[in-house]
Design a protein around this nucleic acid. Structure first.
Lengths: 190, 190
DNA sequence: CAATTTCATTGACAATTGTTAAGAAATCAT
DNA sequence: ATGATTTCTTAACAATTGTCAATGAAATTG
């Protein structure tokens, strides 16, 4: 099982004492299925590490239907950067896709850690860069691939999504209707 | 005419002396039409302010055709953040869409300014946040709108693009074929 | 300015997707 | 377990887009 400790050590070189101190500032939070980590209209003031389970970033369209814009699984960090950085209300919900264990740290405590351990800032920067890359990549995929290609891309690079996320969420994530996703899946298994 | 000075003053509160000093670190660069600010394979080590003209961020697909992923006009900053931040080779070109005047600063000098004027860091952070927002918004637009809606969105929010960028570039920017763009345009004028 | 190239539009046809509706399969709650 | 709900699949038809080819307009070049 991958732990927060492992993840932090992979991102920067901390001593054992340092990591333990850093980890002690994260609080365990348990979400039931459909429990919320972030609620539409609120400012995202926390970052979470996913110990177990998975989450879905869900946007509600003007017409009222839900669109999945991202997912998070074990070993990943969760935050809505657009809200976290600018301290403006989020336009999405982040909900648990299944019973989920998180380790949560507030923005305040995180910035406190930045000051205590300058190496910690590197982690913040890496998360920001990673977020930027992910968005950019996501956009490129939409701009350059057709629906089947996007599905194959997810299949290759994020198979966890296909294994653990309901298909009607995967469909909105790919920007298509569930029926189209079904057709694509059928055409691939024959 | 909007100047770099105006733009900096809008983003943060500098004294006249400070702005003049900051501006003095930018070097004027003139690009002919199709001239390059960034070349595929090189690391983006500069940020430019567009005084006059416009630029296109162009990606080359595996099949060899060009896809416009972004544009920049007067009063905006230009850089390929993915390369600039991580110092990895860019996978795009940034070329002038017309004769263009830039004010260019190197990453080195910019970071030097960050140390000299802490207020300057705010500008760096704002540019980063802006970049992140832009990517996220761009992705959402692809995920939730059909081709006509995306065209109308650009029409409403970035009409400069429609006025000054060739349509075959706008088409790739919208993720469609030039023929489809033509049909959408016709259906709107009738 | 003429000649050439590039770009935008149009039409016909094929392929794909959205829409609507129905039924099968899986999941949930009691 | 079993009935109820949710999720997934399938089909038929309409609408949209891609593809290919041709034409005219516009821009570029010498």
């Amino acid at each position: 099982m991958e732990t927060l400790k492992d993840t932090l050590l992979q991102l920067s070189s901390f001593s054992d004492q340092e990591v333990e101190d850093i980890i002690s500032h994260f609080k365990p939070v348990t979400l039931k299925k459909k429990g919320r980590f972030l609620t539409n209209g609120r400012v995202c003031r926390q970052i979470a590490y996913v110990e177990k389970g998975s989450l879905i970033y869900l946007q509600t369209s003007p017409e009222g239907d839900h669109i999945a814009i991202d997912f998070a699984f074990e070993g990943e960090f969760v935050a809505y950067l657009q809200s976290f950085l600018t301290e403006t209300p989020a336009d999405i919900d982040i909900i648990a896709n299944e019973p989920t264990h998180l380790l949560v740290i507030s923005k305040e405590r995180l910035y406190h850690l930045y000051e205590k351990y300058s190496k910690m800032e590197r982690i913040g920067r890496l998360l920001l860069e990673e977020g930027l890359m992910k968005m950019a990549k996501g956009r490129t995929i939409f701009q350059t691939m057709d629906n089947r290609e996007r599905y194959l891309y997810v299949m290759k690079h994020s198979s966890k999504i296909l294994e653990r996320i309901p298909q009607y969420h995967i469909a909105t994530y790919l920007g298509i209707k569930p029926e189209s996703l079904s057709r694509i899946r059928r055409s691939l298994t024959q």
